[in-house]
C-alpha cells in the first residue's frame, strides 16, 4: 500500500515538473504579454511529434529537445506575425496556427507514434545513466525532470531581469510606453510568443520521451491546463509578491496534477478527465475573480 502511494506521488511530481515547462510558456503569454495564445494546443504536440520522429530515427535524445524548441519557436513566430503584421486578433491568430499545426503534426509523426523500449531517451541514456544509473527508472525520471524544470526556471528568472526581459513586461503593461522607448512593440510581442511556444514545445518533447509515445490529440486542452495552473499559482501566492511568476506557475502545475491524480484515485473514469478539467478551470476563474473583488 505504501509503495503504491509512493509510486503515485513520484509520478505526480514527474508530471508536474515536465508540464511546468509548458506553464512557464503560458505565464509569458497570458500573464506578461496579456496574449491568450491558443497556438499552445498545436505547438505542444509539435514538440512531441518532432522528438518522436527524431528518437525513432536514432537521434540523440538531448538534441531532440533543441529541435523541439526550434519548431515551437517557429510556431510562435508564425502566430506573432499573423497577429502583428496582418493585424489578426490574438485569439484567431493562435487558432489559425493551431489548426495548421494539427495537419503538420500528422504529417510529421502520423496519428500515433510509439518509441519502443530499446530506444534511448534522456531518462535512460548518456549522462542520466552515468550519474543516476543506480537509481530506479522513476526516481531517475524525477531527478532529470526536476533538473530541467529548475534550470529553465532559473534561466527565465534571470532573463526577466534583463533589459529585453523587462521590455516584455512593459509591452504587456503599457504598449505606448514601449513605443515611447523608441522600440517597435510588435517585434517585442513576437519575441515573447517565440520564447513561449519554444518552452511549450520543449514540454511536449519531454512528455513524449517520458511516456515514449506521440499522439495527434495530445495537445487538446493543454492551453486550458496551462492557464489553470498559472491562475492557481498566482491565486495561491497573491499575497506574497516576492514569489516569482515562474515559481507560481511551477506550484500551479503541481497543485493541478495533484488534483487530477486524486480525482482518478477516487474512481473518476478517464473519459471524464477533460470535463473535470473544464469544471476545475471554471471554479478557479470564479474563485479568483471573487477574491480580487474583495481585495
Amino acid at each position: 500500500m505504501m509503495e503504491v502511494f509512493f509510486n503515485l506521488s513520484v509520478n505526480v511530481l514527474i508530471q508536474s515538473l515536465i508540464y511546468a515547462v509548458l506553464t512557464y510558456g503560458i505565464y509569458i503569454t497570458y500573464k506578461i504579454l496579456d496574449f491568450p495564445d491558443l497556438t499552445v494546443d498545436g505547438s505542444f504536440p509539435l514538440g512531441a511529434a518532432v522528438s518522436a520522429l527524431l528518437l525513432v530515427n536514432g537521434a540523440d535524445p538531448w538534441l531532440t529537445i533543441v529541435a523541439a524548441a526550434l519548431s515551437g519557436a517557429l510556431a510562435g513566430l508564425f502566430t506573432g506575425i499573423i497577429h502583428v503584421k496582418f493585424k489578426v486578433r490574438d485569439l484567431l491568430a493562435g487558432i489559425i496556427t493551431m489548426t495548421a499545426l494539427f495537419s503538420l503534426n500528422l504529417q510529421i509523426a502520423g496519428s500515433n507514434l510509439t518509441v519502443d523500449r530499446a530506444t534511448p531517451t534522456i531518462f535512460t541514456s548518456g549522462i542520466a545513466m552515468r550519474l543516476f544509473g543506480g537509481l530506479s527508472l522513476s526516481l531517475r525520471k524525477l531527478i532529470i525532470s526536476a533538473l530541467i524544470a529548475f534550470a529553465i526556471k532559473i534561466l527565465l528568472d534571470i532573463f526577466f531581469k534583463t533589459k529585453y526581459g523587462m521590455l516584455l513586461f512593459a509591452v504587456g503593461d503599457n504598449e505606448r510606453f514601449v513605443t515611447s522607448l523608441a522600440r517597435d512593440k510588435g517585434s517585442v510581442k513576437i519575441m515573447g510568443l517565440v520564447i513561449s511556444d519554444a518552452l511549450v514545445a520543449i514540454s511536449g518533447c519531454l512528455v513524449c520521451q517520458e511516456q515514449r509515445s506521440f499522439s495527434a490529440t495530445m495537445g487538446t486542452g493543454q492551453m486550458v491546463f496551462g492557464l489553470a495552473a498559472v491562475i492557481i499559482g498566482s491565486t495561491v501566492f497573491r499575497k506574497m509578491s516576492f514569489v516569482k511568476g515562474t515559481s507560481c506557475a511551477l506550484a500551479g502545475s503541481l497543485i493541478y496534477k495533484l488534483c487530477i491524480q486524486i480525482a482518478i484515485l477516487l474512481g473518476l473514469p478517464a473519459n471524464l478527465l477533460k470535463m473535470v478539467t473544464a469544471v476545475l478551470f471554471l471554479v478557479i476563474l470564479i474563485v479568483g475573480q471573487s477574491r480580487t473583488r474583495e481585495a
Binding site: F159, K163, Y164, L167
Partner: peptide, 9 residues
Amino acid sequence: GKKFDFTFC
C-alpha cells in the same frame, strides 16, 4: 534609444 540586450536592466 540604446540596445535592449541581455544585460541586467
